[in-house]
């Protein structure tokens, strides 16, 4: 039996999950049972971090998977004009990845460099750390 706290709503039920059958007790709604089983069977997390921004000329990872091409938003025109490039670009995995791979994902994020222009949703690392998640930009840089 493993005890975990349910996070599907603010109540925070203390669930008891059987490690073999994945049966759940202590939940006060069906969503808790689903959460408890999944959290034990295959816990997943979204990883957010930043990557180093390098000026033009350095190597750049452009979208390689057409399904992950940039979404609508263009670079923000309201960024202070004339301001130096920001030093870091915020990124995330575009879907939850296995919890046990968080640090492997971080290791790859730490190695990659981004060069503007970049749009929200641009893929910086496809299939990060062998998962089906991609590391994507969460901000546009001109």
């Amino acid at each position: 039996m493993k005890e975990i706290i349910c996070i599907t709503c603010p109540k925070g039920c203390h669930l008891k999950v059987d490690e073999e059958s994945f049966s759940v007790t202590g939940n006060s709604c069906p969503r808790g049972a689903v959460y408890g089983a999944n959290e034990l069977r295959s816990p997943v997390r979204v990883v957010t971090s930043t990557v180093v921004v390098e000026p033009v000329g350095a190597s750049i990872a452009r979208p390689q998977n057409p399904d992950c091409l940039p979404r609508t938003s263009d670079a923000c025109p309201y960024e202070g004009s004339g301001k130096d490039l920001p030093r870091r670009l915020p990124v995330k995995t575009d879907r939850p990845i296995p919890k046990g791979k968080m640090f492997a994902v971080m290791a790859e994020i730490n190695r990659v460099r981004a060069t503007p222009p970049i749009k929200v949703g641009d893929v910086l690392i496809p299939h990060v750390a062998g998962t089906d998640g991609n590391v994507v930009a969460t901000k546009s840089l001109e």
Binding site: V46, K92, V120, K139, S140
Partner: peptide, 16 residues
């Protein structure tokens, strides 16, 4: 589920 910069970006896009 969005990140902070993405959430702000949605509004900034509308503003444009």
């Amino acid at each position: 589920e969005l990140t902070g910069p993405e959430y702000a970006g949605r509004f900034i896009d509308l503003l444009r």
